[in-house]
Design a protein around this nucleic acid. Structure first.
Lengths: 199, 199, 199, 199
DNA sequence: TCTTAAGCGAGACGGTACGTCACGTCTTCTG
DNA sequence: CAGAAGACGTGACGTACCGTCTCGCTTAAGA
């Protein structure tokens, strides 16, 4: 993983876990920006050096911590109905974006705007694995003729998730699960007015 | 405006402009995160307190500075062809997102993730005025039957701009003007496979 | 007076008094060091410039304010008994040094250590007039044979008052009126052991 | 010592000395009031925090620095002739008060008028050890009958040193070594006119 | 009586220094 | 001898005051 050094010789698993736990806890309590590395070390009962030994930045610690918590959600469901599967997955994301924990994720993405290494870690660890899962599901749907054959899959993935991230990061409106249907309807049927067509 | 105090008595216009200029210049040279308020004050030949007197944070200064530079782009074109008009505007945004200056905007949005006041300033000053322009254009198009009557306009605005912001902020891929057509095609025609329909 | 400009044309007597009152009040409440010129101006309902127009420094304001309050104590008594007269005056000084107001005086002398102009104002306005009064009284006593003819009067004045100031400024011990007799006994009779002599 | 924290764990001796040296140097060059903590840190090649970690104030730093320089002068001579010994010690003090370095001491005492902790440090570190030395010398002299048996020693110590401090702090006149004899003559023989007595 | 120049309250201005916080590295002692 | 504890150099923070300046307004002098 991008946030891991090559050779974790002598690495203390106890300290490792304690750091991730402490980081998440403190960010939840007071926000990522107000959480210092010193505070994480103190909370984890760990020397500051131990953190700097294994992670390049505070953001990297939280990328790993968030990933550990959200690992189960990587798998993309496949019930045969791509609309329903996308809906399920997006609702899960929308619900997460409504929780308090998501603001740690939000702040980490914010910090990554000034920290290319953190940005890369987010992509590699959190975003891309899920994007790949979605892409594979869309591929199957495309092969089965459930979505247009000429649509670029990467464009579709982004078109679907972008509105959720847009609302999260720009704060235009909260991301409620109900809005997922609005998005999917638009994305599936398009903007163009049409002669009545069977769904 | 959100970043302005109620009563700018005796405010020095010279200092005001010098601060905005200095802030933009330094952010362009070394990035927003590496630009300190001290440095802006020094570059502008201004006391630090003068900055804190009129703006609540470094981010707020840059919201106003960016807004001053980009004020002309608020107007949304109306040639009668909504697809072409959206395309024009999106291409302009995509081009801006490719420039070096956009990374200041990007970092300011990043900082706003930990600073609700800055987030509000971005919405009020930069985002919402342009969103309103787009929305009004879509309303006319909807009245003229160029887009579906049952589509919620706010959803459409976000569906169109979100992919550009997503790429900007998540760094998945650069936002080239060519991709604008890919997005618009998807958005207008939808994902559903279809019997040939006239464009 | 040293703290007064040459030509007080148009000077507002109301403001003048308000400044002196405000300065004394604030110093009494929170100490000289914690009292800012801004605060004095605000308390006096006066523009800051008005203070700077008439006094060179915060310390100079307080020298004048203290002087106004203590003007009556300049006169040195003359009952014919120089010992008793010195005792009276020293007791008055010792009592003042025990009051809360004296710590303003103390702090002003402290500030004068880094401000030659203030030091000069203290000498000219507060110290020297009283020293001269004491000196004149000692001169008469010397002419009347109550003190040694060969003693330098300036040395005597300092020898008498220095212990009080020493205790005030060095904080070795408080200056109680009772100690005045101890000092005067020593000063009058000297350290040398002696054959019994008539008082 | 009053200016030392209880437990100097891991304190860097190199930084410690560099701070004291830098503080003295800068105060000598530009005065105590014009010397900022920033400047001391810069001159010493040390972080500002390191100063604040070990001393409560700029004044406390200089109390320790002055003490380190003047440690040798604590011992009080004892040749058997108390007048001569006092004269020696007072001349040394008077000479020091004439040097440029003494104005650092003077300004520190000034600052202590608004800083009780600094005042205490001056007493504990600089004044009281020397006062005790003087007091012990006077005790011996008193036992040997060189000074009056009924004189309070603390009063004598202050009576002797106070005029020197008075001149230093009130700026009435410089403290020349010649004046020491004038003071001592007065103090030993007293003010009272007398029948010729053998010295 | 009417200018007119000043003093005036208010407070913004360019600055300096403050004392604190967090960073990422280095050092010391302890288990 | 690895790791906790935390001191270190660095640098930015946001605040407090400094002494000067720029505003309109009031006020008293002299034309």
């Amino acid at each position: 993983m991008a946030t891991e050094p090559a050779n974790p010789r002598y690495r203390s698993e106890r300290s490792h876990q304690a750091i991730l736990d402490a980081a998440l806890k403190l960010c939840l309590e007071q926000g990522f920006a107000r959480t210092s590395v010193d505070a994480i070390a103190r909370e984890a009962g760990v020397g500051k050096q131990t953190i700097y030994r294994w992670w390049p930045s505070k953001a990297a610690v939280l990328v790993e911590a968030i990933n550990r918590r959200s690992a189960p959600s990587v798998d993309f469901p496949d019930t045969g109905d791509v609309y329903a599967d996308l809906r399920d997955q997006m609702v899960a994301v929308a619900k997460f974006f409504q929780t308090t924990q998501s603001s740690t994720y939000r702040e980490v993405i914010g910090a990554a705007q000034s920290d290319p290494a953190a940005a890369q870690a987010i992509l590699d660890t959190l975003v891309n694995p899920r994007v790949q899962g979605c892409r594979r599901r869309l591929e199957r749907a495309q092969r089965q003729g459930q979505i247009r054959a000429d649509a670029a899959l990467d464009d579709i993935v982004e078109l679907i998730y972008a509105p959720l991230y847009y609302r999260l990061l720009m704060g235009t409106r909260p991301t409620t699960p109900e809005q997922v249907d609005d998005i999917l309807n638009l994305v599936f049927d398009g903007l163009r007015p049409r002669t009545p067509s069977p769904r």
